[in-house]
């Protein structure tokens, strides 16, 4: 039981990240658009943190050697299975021998493919997320064979032309202009009045952006002090001004420690938005509070919980797999 990569484009096997990494000096890494990655796994009947494929920007093709159930989320694209057009953000049945193709990604930068039962990948500190600095992880190449663990017989669509599933998830929107929410960083005072420039400027995403950080062109806040900063841990989402040319927004591949003042920090929810920002896209920042950011993050996760229970119902009616388990307990709203 496997998937054979025919056209890798730019793709890896990842999960939600290496949460034990930072204390050992390794970045968390993992799926940059966490909402899309979680949604893909839920739609495929997996736990949120199951290994899945992250496809960045380029066209991608692979062939199934067995009957499978998959789900594709993230940036809009043209999804075909055995030549048939299929829907993203829904479970999709794949028959042995068919080719799964993702083409013409647009509006965003990253798509996720989850496979029911997941795929095999090596693990470091509890995660399969690639780490480019230590050279760890599964980057896909032409001919790579991904082992899958569960076969799902083809699900027949009784009514021609009707979608197979109707799960009602509100899909994220993908625009070439995005509003990114941030909270004031621990060093905001070092920037004096120039900090306000962050909120009054439209920034342009530079082509030199990657999983470590996004570089944004536009009017730059300026640090008012020149005192040397001792290296310290910096959070994912830290907004820094390391040079006079660009703003740097650190993402999940960031070096764990650095010596630049942290002007602002992107919210967990908005990190997903940044994960989908293409070079040339426009970004504006909006100030929010930690309380509001936490509430939005939890609201998104509750939406995914609703999806999970619907998927569970549908899958048990169809006799697919086990009832998908929840990855982690979610507290009641407002705690």
């Amino acid at each position: 039981m496997s998937l054979v990569i025919q056209q890798p484009g730019n793709s890896v096997v990842t999960d939600l990240g290496r949460f034990r990494g930072p204390r050992f000096g390794l970045p968390v890494n993992g799926a940059l658009d966490q909402f899309s990655a979680r949604a893909a796994n839920i739609l495929a009947g997996n736990g949120d943190d199951a290994p899945l494929l992250e496809v960045t920007a380029l066209d991608f093709r692979m062939r199934a050697t067995t009957d499978l159930l998959i789900a594709v989320t993230g940036a809009p694209l043209r999804l075909t299975v055995g030549g048939r057009e299929c829907q993203q953000w829904e479970p999709v049945s794949v028959q042995a021998g068919e080719t799964i193709a993702l083409r013409r990604m647009h509006g965003g930068l990253r798509a996720y493919i989850a496979v029911h039962g997941s795929v095999d990948a090596p693990v470091l500190l509890g995660s399969c997320a690639p780490d480019t600095v230590v050279g760890f992880g599964l980057r896909l190449a032409e001919g790579t064979e991904l082992k899958t663990s569960r076969s799902v017989p083809p699900i027949r669509q009784p009514y021609f032309d009707l979608p197979l599933f109707r799960l009602g998830l509100t899909r994220p929107e993908f625009h070439s202009t995005a509003v990114v929410e941030v909270t004031d960083g621990p060093d905001v005072e070092e920037f004096g009045d120039t900090a306000e420039l962050l909120y009054n400027t439209e920034y342009t995403v530079s082509g030199r952006s990657n999983h470590i950080g996004l570089r944004l062109g536009g009017a730059l806040p300026e640090r008012q002090s020149t005192a040397e900063v001792l290296s310290r841990g910096v959070p994912v989402g830290a907004v820094e001004v390391p040079s006079r040319e660009e703003l740097l927004v650190l993402h999940r591949g960031r070096g764990v420690t650095a010596g630049y003042p942290v002007l602002a920090v992107v919210t967990s929810r908005s990190l997903d938005v940044l994960a989908q920002a293409r070079p040339g896209h426009k970004i504006t920042f909006r100030r929010t509070s930690v309380t509001e950011a936490t509430a939005k993050h939890r609201a998104a996760l509750r939406e995914l919980e609703t999806l999970r229970s619907k998927v569970g119902t549908v899958f048990s009616l169809l006799g697919i797999g086990n009832q998908p388990g929840r990855h982690q307990p979610l507290p009641a709203a407002g705690t």
């Binding site: 841990g233 959070p235 950011a293 993050h297 939890r298």
Partner: peptide, 14 residues
């Protein structure tokens, strides 16, 4: 993540 005089504590906001 402890360094010289500072500590970054990371947590899951869910």
């Amino acid at each position: 993540v402890p360094t010289y005089d500072s500590l970054l504590v990371e947590f899951d906001p869910a």
